[in-house]
Design a protein around this nucleic acid. Structure first.
Lengths: 102, 102
DNA sequence: CAACGAGTTCGACGATCGTCGTACACTCTG
DNA sequence: CAGAGTGTACGACGATCGTCGAACTCGTTG
């Protein structure tokens, strides 16, 4: 199961908006955007169980918002900032600016 | 029942993103943005029933995306462009640019 | 090998969503 | 007043969502 990611051209606006419309996921994306370093799923201080965490990361990945790959025992995630910027210019910044304040 | 609208400061990012994450609603907003004129709910060429239409307009209104008021027999809607721009600068344009193409 | 840590898979649950049809309310126009 | 047009209220439905727990896999480390 080689971790499905949509191509840049396949990223759908409604899927991205839906992925970002959940507070937990919005927070994940905000953290991911704050320090550009890829992070392991467990390092977000989210108060949800591991299975819920897996679910949210899958939604983000399948929407094309993040990229994931294994690295040893952990699985790292990072924002697909360039792809999102190419496909929906300005969208990520517009979403993250207010999210950073809140 | 005087048509609940959130104040500018009460508009929530996740609610807006959720409101825009449905294809029908995204299309409504795109049409509303295309010609600035307020429009009646029935004039969007949507292939959904009246009750579904009412539902979508309520979601958009309660999220703070549109404004509605009666005018005679009809009910007009328009984008709350200024409020959205003040609260989430650039968001609306970022969402509408690709939506206009599609 | 055994134990641990990090994620996944697989139901399950209550809640919400998008859609519909029917019945109703309101406003304008004969 | 009677009708037509426009929108609402209220259930209802199947689908999806966000969450959980328990059992599992895989890599690391003792």
């Amino acid at each position: 199961m080689p971790l499905e990611h949509p191509d840049r051209d396949e990223i759908e606006l409604t899927a991205v908006l839906h992925a970002l419309s959940d507070p937990q996921r919005l927070r994940i994306v905000a953290v991911l955007a704050a320090d550009e370093e890829p992070r392991a799923c467990g390092s977000f201080g989210l108060e949800i169980t591991k299975s819920t965490c897996t679910h949210h990361f899958r939604v983000l990945r399948e929407a094309g918002v993040i990229e994931q790959w294994r690295e040893g025992a952990a699985k790292l995630s990072s924002l697909r900032r360039a792809d999102l910027e190419a496909r929906f210019p300005g969208l990520l910044d517009a979403v993250l600016a207010p999210a950073a304040v809140a």
